[in-house]
Amino acid sequence: MSAIEELITELARLPGIGRKTAQRLTFHLLQQPAEQVGRLAAALTGVSERVRACTECGNLTEEQPCAICRDPRRDPAVLCVVEEPSAVSVVDRATEFRGRYHVLGGRLSPLDGVGPESLRIAPLLERVDRGGVREVILATNPSMEGEVTATYIQQLLAGRGLRVTRLARGLPVGGDLEYVDGVTLQHALSARQEIG
């Protein structure tokens, strides 16, 4: 396989990138100065060599444990459980949550060969059993599998004297009712809240 062909094939493996885009990217890179391409290559190598899962929470980090787990201003008594590392930065940037995280690394899906042993569920229980955790917030995705995963973990946590909570589901703020999909609207209706 030629070098060009090899790069196109590798780029086309990336999510959201088809063969045409991979080709465009390859030819774009070929037109760049060598040092710029070198920086990209070095950045890719650096990511794959230096970034690891945090031994404590499973988030991606270059240092052990990660910055969030080391931060003394964060409340170690509240754990927010998410499916993927990408969710950590989303929740952290968008909310005022100042507890710590626990990344599962996926959700239960027998069809994809993912059972509880493939997820970081055992390390979660260890963290809880070490003491000092008061609340676990289950922030898995609101998909069927995400909910099953949350329920599964909730059952394992039962009887450990913890508060276990789940993110609420409902209407997006600042949206227009007309554009909300039916399923979300149904959830919002069933979980409606008393006012005044």
Binding site: L108, P110, G115, P116, M144, E147, V148, T151, Y152
Partner: peptide, 8 residues
């Protein structure tokens, strides 16, 4: 593991 899918 199958049982985990009983609620939905």
């Amino acid at each position: 593991l199958a049982q985990a899918f009983d609620p939905p």
